[in-house]
Amino acid sequence: MILVYINTLNGIGKSSYEAVTYAKKMGDSVVVLTNGNEEESNLSSLGDYGAEKVMIHREITSFESGQICDLISKVAEQHGINTIVFSHDHVSKAVAPMLSTRLSAGLVPGAISLPDSNGHIDVNVFSGKAIAKVSINSDKKIISLLPNSIPLEKNETTCVVEDLSLDLCEAKIKLLSKKELEGDIPLPEAELVVSAGRGLKGPENWGMVEDLAKTMGAATACSRPVSDIGWRPHHEHVGQTGIAIRPNLYIAAGISGAIQHLAGVNGSKVIVVINTDPEAPFFKAADYGIIGDAFEVLPKLNESMKKFMAQNN
């Protein structure tokens, strides 16, 4: 039996279904563990991807890494579980290493493949500039799956939802408040991303980026200098020192394509580059290139996209 831990405090995202798909493809039965207030009817949707059971601990309602670690390790022990799968998100980045230490279970953070016949798993290293094959030396194993790494696969399974009561260690992290951000689509999960750089000259020109993103149902991103000078929020900064993403489509306007930027986006399936400078290094990493002024190209692309959307939806 494989245990998948998912974070449902912000709803059930696509990456949770991916983690269940991944575990199911490993060939064993899959049970899911989570915590919070998510409704039973939503939780049972995990059965569409192969989960037989969802266990939910309703008392942990905030991101308390110590208690979540305690919860997973107690459940794993009770059920004699040797393999635990996470989605590589902000919760797993805190909890999976704690759990790895507690269970003496080797951890593969940011897996992008299933284990091969030798049990080796691919992960991105050097911020996307290379891939490493990692082997886990311990009997117990923890795999944290990078979002957008494997296609979702339905596997209709009858899924029961069970409320868990378990005594847990004391909470040490107190959630004081939460500020909601205007976030439409979380960037790491987005399949389509429209991104822009210093070539856009100022924050007042981002309307055309947002318009295109809205038409396409895409998330927005930016280069590092753009977030450093405060034109855009930090969480949009992609690259070697920002977040690494691997959407199906990455459209970059007014970004030169410095090696540090490419590192965070070269896992994208298809890259479109819009730049006035035919020598911009980004063209070397692009699938489709447009030599032109973003101020003219983006609105035109938006119009064409709108037409396409109207015909296809």
Binding site: N10, H90, L176, K179
Partner: peptide
């Protein structure tokens, strides 16, 4: 920063 917002904690 968490998906959809910023959380403030005390520890």
């Amino acid at each position: 920063e968490v998906p959809g917002g910023i959380e403030v904690y005390e520890v």
